[in-house]
Amino acid sequence: MIRVTTPLENVEALQAGDEVAISGVIYTARDAAHQRLVQLIREGKPLPFPVEGAVIYYVGPSPAKPGEPIGSAGPTTSMRMDGLTVPLLELGLKGMIGKGGRSQEVVEAMQKHKAVYFAAVGGAAALIAQHIKSVEVVAYPDLGTEAVHRMVVEDFPAIVAIDTQGRNVYEQGVAKYRQPMAEGSK
């Protein structure tokens, strides 16, 4: 287990397959927030949070019960954000947390701008919520669960899924455990 703190530095040291525990501030954004963030970038306007060295978590949490910082908060499917990710990497985004693979375009931009992609366990949302200590909305409150939240996390469990050299745990893992199929099944 490798301890990682935000804002991220020396991300080149992280390798695909490493299990990490992330502590510090992370920001949430998913489909609707990404559209707005990219629109701001296109218009040359400032973003609502400091993106340099930042980690974005693709999540739409369930509402907090009274006295709790947040409800369940597991990762959503990252590929939906693929078409809106490169402009953020160009501005210095260093980490993303989600689930599932990424497009070739994103992987190449991650190599170019030295960023890592972490995978959290999809569906382990109650477990992950135990590592989120405080939450506040920093932009787009009208989006509800899809608003940009600033989260303080402690030992948030994740895996380095794709590293700065383009090594990819999805490709490596599947290749390792794939078994031959008879009768032309593929």
Binding site: G60, G123, A125, A126, L127, A129, P157
Partner: peptide, 22 residues
């Protein structure tokens, strides 16, 4: 991963939290 999933089920049941945010 499977350990985390099983642990998640226990936490969700105990705290009456949704297993998944979705």
């Amino acid at each position: 991963v499977l350990d985390a999933i099983l642990e998640n089920a226990k936490i969700a049941k105990e705290k009456k939290m949704p297993l998944c945010q979705d």
